[in-house]
């Protein structure tokens, strides 16, 4: 566990005094989110056993680990989605821009507005058209949408889906292919202009071509949005993530820059997992 805390500073910077000027010139990205001793349970079963982990701003952070290690639960705690499940509880803190999202008086709805989410299985609303799906976040909350078509086009372009659907916008969202549906869900999340985008195994239901498109998209989005992606595909983490955290049995084993974690893991368990000895 100590290892993980030490490598919070990317290794290139280790042993060097980081000046304030350097920080301000954004050599070190600011922390967008930090979970502090985060614990999450379903009933009496503790799934996360005290995770302290930073998520750097406008970077892609991958969460890897074997099935059941708590990766999904971890990201669901970052936008207060975990507590929507039956008998699910959370303890500890999650700092978003330094402010705890679990402190009293915070509206989870407002947090979910700022921290968007894309799920494992594409889940467009079947009763809505493609355009309505994109605007769903706004229309479902009863907000007035001034420039509907502009917003639809912008979000779909961001999600690299515009060219494929621009002529069929009134069609049902469920009529698209799986990969297109997933990009529609990404567009739906982006239409709310979130500060952070959580992706819970967004490619696990998709074929390699659709996966490649989503990964490309993550690359592009990573410059504007803070992204946390859960994956059990280590090659994928290697391809898209700037930083990687390895979770095992509800604990954070290791965190660091992706290339360092993959080439010189500090922990034996990380190495075993990456080389395929378990998990």
């Amino acid at each position: 566990m100590m290892k993980a805390t030490e490598s919070f500073v990317p290794t290139a910077e280790k042993g060097r005094v980081v000046t304030i000027a350097e920080r301000e010139s954004a050599i070190l990205p600011a922390e967008k989110i930090r979970s502090v001793d985060l614990r999450a349970s379903f009933g009496a079963t503790e799934v996360l056993k005290g995770i302290t982990l930073p998520i750097l701003e406008r970077q892609v952070t991958a969460i890897i680990g074997p099935s059941g290690c708590g990766k999904s639960t971890f990201v669901r705690c970052l936008n207060r989605m975990h507590e929507t499940a039956h008998r699910a509880t959370v303890a500890g803190r999650v700092l978003l821009d330094g402010r705890d999202i679990y402190r009293a008086g915070i509206d989870p709805v407002a947090i979910r507005r700022r921290v968007g989410m894309v799920f494992q299985k594409p889940n467009p609303f079947p009763t809505m058209s493609i355009a309505e799906n994109v605007l769903a976040g706004l229309s479902l909350t009863g907000e007035r949408i001034p420039h509907r078509m502009e917003l639809v086009e912008k979000a779909l372009r961001q999600a690299a889906l515009w060219d494929e659907v621009k002529d069929i916008l009134p069609r049902s969202g469920a009529s698209l292919s799986g990969g297109q549906q997933q990009r529609l869900c990404i567009a739906r999340a982006l239409a709310l202009d979130p500060e952070v985008l959580l992706m819970d195994e967004p490619c696990s239901a998709l074929d390699p071509i659709a996966t490649a498109r989503i990964e490309e998209l993550i690359h592009e989005l990573g410059d504007h949005v803070t992204i946390v992606i859960v994956t059990h595909n280590m090659q994928q983490a290697g391809r898209v993530a700037d930083h990687t955290a390895f979770l095992y049995m509800g604990e954070l084993v290791e965190y660091g820059p992706t290339d360092r974690v993959f080439t010189r893991p500090a922990e034996q368990r990380t190495e075993d997992y990456i080389t395929g000895r378990f998990g």
Binding site: V109, A110, I111, M117, F119, F125, A136, G137, L140, A189
Partner: peptide, 19 residues
């Protein structure tokens, strides 16, 4: 109705009653 649809709405910051 699949939980995934309910979650999709909640994750968009839609209050529960509206979802």
């Amino acid at each position: 109705v699949p939980t995934s649809l309910r979650e999709a709405a909640l994750a968009l910051g839609v209050p529960r009653w509206r979802a």
